[in-house]
Nucleic acid binder design. Structure first.
Length: 668
DNA sequence: GACGGAGGTCTTTTT
DNA sequence: GACCTCCGTC
């Protein structure tokens, strides 16, 4: 291990002995590096890797950390398992879920599965309210679960709060009946297990003699409690965080955990990293100027000796399309002039929907690109359908998946039949599959429909036998053929290309499964399903090529860095987003988000905004973001995107862009 | 009773 | 532009 390239403070953190350690590390100060070195140091000091528990928040961050540790160790010792909080929960629950009344082959429900359950629950509970927003109910429930409490009905003035509290027990019961856990349960149930089962906690404490948590400002209460239980009073616990980069308050993160940490472990050693090794001074000055507008902030003095660099560019554009082509134009010339590669350039935006414009522009320019996040591969309908088949085979009680595939492709089991089966299931308190087995005796189900139902079940039984460890991909290929999925897809779509693309996606699942099997030959279907449900971020088939321009949300960009960064859509209502400004502290979080985005840039940073933008098929006039007015004038160069090519009044476009430019200048 | 087509409604960020 | 719901037809 070569620690010579660490600065004194980083070294101190890496070689800190036992006991709690808090590393307060600003953006770009080498916190991942420090953490990686610390893990490697533990391993090379002889700590068995399976006694180290390293946790990151996203799979991407976990991969990154794992890669760094491996390269520091250079084959001397193997890196410890590095998981996300959620995948750690799965590992624990896979062993002991039975103690909580779940079976070990439980299914993980994602947001849309949750939505199905909630709609069902609302229907059964006769909460019919036409425009009942199930998402809102789930949102309230999720926030409560993240805080580790039951949903609070409030004083009755908030209808949704009340309803969420009323429906929550039914929702939880449904999940239990389906042998399914939602994302929040993966944490909450793990915590419950640790609290209730001394033996389980003891066993995991042995495997967590050293705990390291990245992005600690993003932990919620449940995660904090998990860590606290595992680490114990005098734990060997290292956490890294930066409260200026707390951007997950909306999903229950409690950035106060950083300060609570010092309260809970008074003997904590605190090390602050403030030298930035990523960005030019100009970029840092601009980012600091923005974040300084946040009240109640712990002042920080982030500095860099990487030189002035070029000014931050603020680029005024007429409309969303012009913004995209202007950005792409600049990327093209960066690649041409400076010989940087596409992969050195990133376009960041506030919402996933913004990516399409940039994708179009990049395609037109003939540049390769990758979209990180966005529509997840496993979110595509055709992929979900296939995964639902697999899930039913693995966990017959997974009712959401069962209902999804029961009549897909169509096999004569219509809505009425399904309703009758469900009613019988509800009345008898028996799982839907069990009721289906005796479909013929269910009231109101005709012989023909009953035959379709039992025929379907027989088919499922038969297919279940095909799935053995080592033959998962092959069995899935057979399933696709036997069920006629590809034919159904081609039939359902008018556009032939779209149909073929869907077929490709289905085959991609088979390939992904084959790849997964090669990596873990002993894995069963449940292992694959869990991995698919937790990881499904980017398209795994897509290798992050060095010449692909990176498109991603600012959230997804956290922890990453790019030589040339473009931040798009700095407009009021979009960034800061109107929906987040409603919540208390929402604007501050948006500002931290802007800060995170700006501090991704190494050499150049370009921020763009438009005068109008298409938002759900309507042209909306846009005001420049207030964050633009917070930029220090001497670090910034204002420019205006050249009038777009194509039809349109060039003079008019120039005039409009000029007006916006004048307006933003006047605000400074 | 099953199924396909048409219309209305929303889109913040993620495990 | 994607999804859910409703409605008319087979």
């Amino acid at each position: 291990m070569d620690a010579s390239r660490l600065n004194p403070r980083q070294k101190e953190a890496v070689f800190h002995g036992d006991g709690p350690l808090l590393i307060v590390a600003g953006a770009g100060t080498g916190k991942t590096r420090t953490l990686a070195f610390r893990i490697a140091r533990l391993v090379s000091d002889g700590v068995p890797p399976d006694q180290i528990l390293a946790v990151a928040f996203t799979n991407k961050a976990a991969d990154e950390l794992r890669g760094r540790v491996r390269s520091i160790l250079r084959g001397k010792g193997s890196p410890p398992p590095i998981s996300t909080f959620h995948s750690f929960g799965v590992r624990v629950l896979r062993q002991d879920a039975e103690r909580l009344g779940f079976k070990r082959n439980f299914t993980i429900y994602d947001t849309s599965d949750q939505l199905s359950v909630m709609r069902e629950v609302a229907r059964e509970s006769h909460v019919v309210g036409r425009d009942l927003d199930a998402k809102k109910l789930l949102w309230i429930i999720s926030r409560a679960k993240n805080d580790g409490v039951a949903p609070d009905p409030g004083d009755g003035s908030d209808e949704y709060r009340l309803l969420a509290a009323q429906l929550y027990p039914r929702y939880a019961a449904a999940l239990r009946a389906y042998n399914a856990l939602d994302f929040d349960d993966l944490l909450l149930m793990t915590l419950r297990l640790f609290r209730d089962e001394e033996r389980v906690l003891r066993a995991w404490k042995k495997r967590a003699r050293h705990i390291l948590v990245d992005e600690f400002q993003d932990t919620n209460h449940v995660q904090y409690d998990l860590v606290r239980l595992l680490a114990g009073r005098s734990g060997n616990l290292t956490v890294v965080g930066d409260d200026d980069q707390s951007i997950y308050g909306w999903r229950g993160a409690a950035p106060g955990n950083i300060h609570g940490f010092v309260r809970d472990w008074p003997q904590t050693k605190v090390i602050t990293l403030d030298q930035n090794y990523r960005s030019t001074c100009t970029i840092l000055t601009a980012a600091n100027a923005v974040i300084e507008n946040n009240p109640h902030r712990r002042p920080k003095n982030l500095w860099s000796d990487l030189g002035e660099g070029v000014p931050v560019t603020v680029l005024a554009c007429r409309a969303g399309e012009d913004e995209a082509s202007a950005v792409v134009e600049r990327i093209v010339s960066l690649i041409a002039e400076k010989r940087c590669r596409g992969g050195d350039c990133a376009v960041m935006f506030r919402t996933n929907a913004q990516s399409r414009l940039f994708e179009d522009a990049l395609r037109r320019a003939g540049l390769r690109y990758v979209v990180i996040g966005g529509m997840r591969f496993y979110d595509r309908k055709e992929v979900r359908d296939l995964v639902a088949y697999l899930s039913c085979l693995h966990n017959p009680r997974d009712e959401v998946s069962l209902l999804r595939i029961l009549n897909y492709p169509p096999r004569g089991i219509g809505r009425e039949t399904v309703h009758r089966l469900q009613a019988a299931s509800l009345a008898g308190g028996r799982p839907l599959v069990e009721v289906m087995k005796g479909a013929a005796s269910v009231e109101g189900v005709a012989e023909r429909q009953a035959g379709a139902v039992t025929g379907f079940l027989a088919r499922v039984e038969e297919m279940r036998r095909w799935f053995r460890p080592g033959s998962l991909a092959e069995a899935t290929r057979r399933l696709v053929g036997a069920v006629g999925l590809e034919e159904a897809l081609l039939r359902s779509v008018k556009d032939r290309d779209a149909g073929h693309r869907k077929v490709e996606n289905v085959r991609e699942v088979v390939s992904a499964l084959a790849a997964f099997e090669r990596g873990e030959p002993r894995a069963d279907l449940g292992d694959y399903l869990a991995a698919a449900n937790l990881s499904g971020r980017e398209d795994e088939s897509e290798e992050p090529a060095a010449d692909s321009v990176v498109l991603l949300t600012v959230h997804a960009a956290k922890g990453l860095e790019f030589r040339h960064a473009f931040l798009a859509g700095f407009e009021e209502g979009l960034f800061p987003h109107e929906r987040s400004c409603l919540a208390p502290g929402g604007l501050e979080e948006e500002r931290r988000l802007a800060y995170v985005g700006m501090t991704r840039a190494m050499e150049s940073l370009t921020i763009t905004y438009t005068g109008e933008r298409t938002r759900w098929a309507r042209e909306v006039v846009c005001e420049p973001s207030r964050f633009l007015a917070e930029l220090p004038e001497d670090a910034v160069r204002f420019e205006q995107a050249s009038a777009a090519e194509g039809p349109g009044d060039a003079e008019d476009e120039a005039r409009i862009a000029g007006e916006y430019l004048a307006r933003i200048r006047s605000r400074l």
